[in-house]
Design a protein around this nucleic acid. Structure first.
Lengths: 166, 166
DNA sequence: AGACTATATGTTATAATGTTTCATTCATGA
DNA sequence: TCATGAATGAAACATTATAACATATAGTCT
């Protein structure tokens, strides 16, 4: 059994009608497991924030998260959200989309990585890729210039299969 | 003479000691020419802002620009800078680095394009690439997923040749 | 030139995003 | 149980960006 893949994450662009509650539940369960293995603490607050991030179908801003969090925790303030997000990002459970000043649940949190994102400008649905060809193309050119890569940000906007005409 | 290249822009990572005043002068002259050809108006203000952007060796934030601009125009306010930057970006004379909330002069303003950036985290020097292999790797994967690309953001941090050890 | 028009800039206020600081609470282990 | 460090609460503040409206300037037409 050379390829014992873990259960596959949702397809890059899930059907608009998919059972998103299930995505959320799976993501939370995975997060619990990973944090358990790592000795990281997925506290009530962090779990709530992660759940809110996942409940959004696309990237969601910190202040939108804050609004939603306040329904659960009346005293929530900006640092409440930002601190939780910081930990979640450290654990690779959430990614930041710089272009949008927004956050999204990581589709492949098992191993640390930096995602590559395809962001639909119409419906907001965002697919996370982890495409070696892209990373290699960047790495190769950087190396040729003597540049030692630390972090790669790849954020692509456009129209997802459901939104594009034709 | 099949390849009548325009004068080459500075190498991706210019030596720290290079004559930057010359870079600035060249960039401004090019901007004048391009705007003239296009019927775009490179006003005094826009020219000043473009010059300030170029005078910085790396990406520079809008409020840093504003501080410097105020030495030239006492009444300058945030919109003064942002509006100038907007026009300069429309003309492809300046790029925005989302990761840094900062702006940088475009190295190849002749044709419209989206740059790919290698940003040194130590000295701030930033190289602009326009590497088809990177764009193609992204394009190909997107196409395979049925995603129609509009804009590509590629921002890579790391250490430039002058700053990296060894 | 004079009047008209569109563009550009000045000015003030405000929105949106993100951080610092210090106090308090909570979990954990000696 | 008490000491410790981590997590959260709470208030203020910093940074980045835009909205709205007034004024000025440049280009055009007659």
């Amino acid at each position: 059994m050379p390829h014992a893949h873990p259960p596959l994450p949702p397809a890059p662009f899930p059907a608009p009608s998919h059972d998103h509650a299930r995505c959320v539940a799976t993501a939370l369960a995975t997060a619990e497991t990973l944090c358990g293995e790592r000795g990281a603490r997925l506290t009530g607050l962090r779990r709530q924030v992660l759940e809110l991030v996942w409940e959004s179908h696309g990237p969601i801003g910190a202040y939108d998260l804050l609004d939603r969090l306040r329904a659960l925790r009346s005293g929530a303030a900006p640092p409440t959200v930002y601190r939780a997000l910081e930990v979640l990002m450290e654990q690779g459970l959430v990614h930041r989309i710089n272009r949008l000043n927004a956050f999204i649940g990581c589709a492949h949190p098992d191993a640390p990585h930096e995602g590559q994102f395809l962001i639909c400008t119409r419906c907001g649905t965002t697919a996370e890729l982890d495409e070696p060809a892209i990373a290699h193309a960047i790495e190769q050119r950087a190396r040729a210039l003597g540049f030692a890569v630390e972090h790669r940000t790849v954020e692509v906007t456009g129209l997802c299969p459901s939104c594009r005409p034709g």
